[in-house]
Design a binder for these strands. Structure first.
Lengths: 342, 342
DNA sequence: ATCCCCTGTGCAATCGTTTGCACGACAACT
DNA sequence: AGTTGTCGTGCAAACGATTGCACAGGGGAT
């Protein structure tokens, strides 16, 4: 059944040279003559030679493999990031191993260890919601394996990070709502050990202040940002004596929940209540009305993470870990557009 | 920077035994005494020994790595399947390498070759929309690497497949529409070298016949099944002298397009036009009205694909390739529910 | 006592490449 | 003519584990 695979020995035998010469010829070593290289190439193709990555990896120490750890593969944001990572990695000859933590710290740690055993050349990770022991990350760095965090990051010496500017995104979204004439803008925020929600809240607050609008604690609702949480938040907000005329949610799902409640109550969107979400999940475009949202540049984030890794690999000596901050992009749809675009 | 990694030689030195003994002890070889095993275990932990997969792979021929090729990682269906695959694979000690073809046959072939070079223990694939040369798949099988197709399959001797029963799904969906009182049911189908659309069309057609409804060619619209295609199809259908009172689309996206057109024209859903899609993308639940759809059991599909692979690996000798057919599940939402559920 | 088998371990080859070092040949320079 | 340098290739030792075979010692059967 299993075909015999050709090795460099087979090529060497045919051409009556040594395997070393073949190896060097294939890797385009400068000291090998053009004639020999051509001959090796030719017989390699003829024998259908495929390099054995494993053997090469063992000797050289490079596996040309990149490990990725995400909470869930089937969440659009993460799968889009993976998409971006894979594009760049593939073009540079790297394979990508995907693992998922299911937001469990224990599972995350196991994943990292498995990746290290697999001798990956680097690890790109978005950490689990459940906080784990940072020692694991430090061990990765200590082993000399480049480590890149994205979106959900942790401060680790020697690691790089790729983020979006959550503050900016929230600021833009809030400013947009103000410009559309909204005066009482509520905010659905999330509680987490991660900074993303804090930064969004800050952006929201600063935008209000910069436009001389009061910051009102009653207009803030904190939750886990699921659809049901958004509904719950909206219901509470509508009980206020002065209900909001706009809602900026820190996630699209919470915004969807809010939208559903508005529809139930017969409130028109965006006239009575304008809505903006966060993440620009693909589904937001298909809602009725389309949900305005802050795009997280997921694919780009993946590409930057991969690029950072590649840089780290190529200059092992003089690479300094760094943080890349991407500017998010406000996508305006019907849910917040009260005034016609000029 | 890089810490020294412990090898079995280090353990052997400490205990004054040979590396062979250590290797066997770690792999729980029956001929090693319990005492030795315990001692090896202890020092392994003490030295923080982590097996080098690469070295083990080179010698043993097993990489404990599973290759996956999908058209796109960031499509919910595929990322959910990957999710399912990863769950089972991880539990059995396998890592999963993800590659994407972007629906290009050339890229798909390159991916497969890269996976083979990486010496993966098996490949799970959903083929590109663009048809490629089946010889690539045969080469995989010829090399003795288990090959499992899912959803978008190709007939290859020696390969296994995991599918959903598209015929059944379509039949159920159509039957459901009939039971809701629809009489003129249109179908948006896709053109492809793959069988999925053909089977859905067959299911649709047979359901009509079984309920004494005529099959009308004018009610069939063929396209690539994007949102815009669905809109286009719906517009055409509405120009008919006898427009349909229901649409069964072979994909959720086409159904969304149709839904948008209905809304534009002021047609009420489901009263004037009932709608059912296919795939049960998560967003369907959030549409207004919620879109009924046929669930493709994506995670389960992934789990079955992984299971098939694991079976093939474990009984290399007496494994016979087989086809697993999953029964899809019709999810009824507001878009097709004309009669109250009793 | 003799033979056989079982238990626990060691020996050494092997997986397929990579790579530091050495070496012969030939050209160029003093 | 001797020295130095460059070019093209070969030698052999890695990389870290796995594994078939051998073997010593001890117990039981004959």
């Amino acid at each position: 059944m299993a075909e015999q695979k050709a090795t460099i020995y087979d090529i060497a035998r045919v051409l009556d040279v040594t395997p070393s010469t073949v190896s060097r010829a294939l890797r385009n070593h400068p000291r090998i003559s053009a004639r020999t290289k051509a001959a090796v190439q030719a017989t390699a193709e003829q024998l259908n030679y495929q390099q054995n990555h494993i053997a090469a990896a063992l000797r050289s120490g490079h596996t040309f493999t990149l490990g990725v750890v995400v909470p869930y593969t089937n969440r659009n944001f993460f799968s889009s990031v993976i998409n971006g990572i894979e594009q760049l990695a593939f073009n540079s000859g790297y394979s990508v191993i995907i693992t998922q933590s299911n937001d469990s710290a224990e599972r995350e740690q196991k994943n990292i260890e498995a990746l290290l055993r697999a001798q990956v050349d680097g690890i790109i990770i978005s950490v689990a919601r459940e906080a784990g022991d940072p020692a694991v990350y430090q061990r990765v760095v200590a082993q000399g394996v480049p480590l890149v965090f994205f979106d959900r990051v942790v401060e680790v010496a020697g690691a790089s990070t790729v983020l979006i500017d959550d503050y900016q995104g929230a600021y833009q979204a809030t400013k947009h709502l103000i410009e559309q004439g909204c005066q009482r803008i509520a905010h659905l925020t999330g509680a987490s050990h991660l900074n993303i929600y804090k930064n969004r809240l800050r952006g929201y607050r600063d935008a209000l202040e910069d436009h001389q609008l009061p910051y009102t604690a009653a207009l803030i609702h904190t939750s886990k940002q699921k659809v049901a949480d958004g509904s719950e938040g909206m219901r509470q907000l509508l009980t206020l004596s002065q209900p909001p005329d706009a809602v900026f949610a820190a996630s699209d799902y919470a915004a969807i929940g809010a939208m559903q409640v508005c529809k139930e109550r017969g409130l028109s969107i965006p006239q009575d209540v304008a809505l903006v979400g966060f993440a620009n999940e693909p589904l937001t475009a298909y809602l009725d009305p389309g949900l305005s949202s802050v795009d997280q540049m997921s694919e780009q984030m993946g590409r930057f993470a991969a690029k950072t890794f590649l840089e780290a690999i190529e200059n092992t000596t003089d690479f300094t870990p760094h943080t890349t901050v991407l500017t998010p992009d406000l996508i305006v749809r019907a849910s917040s557009q009260r005034k016609r675009a000029t």
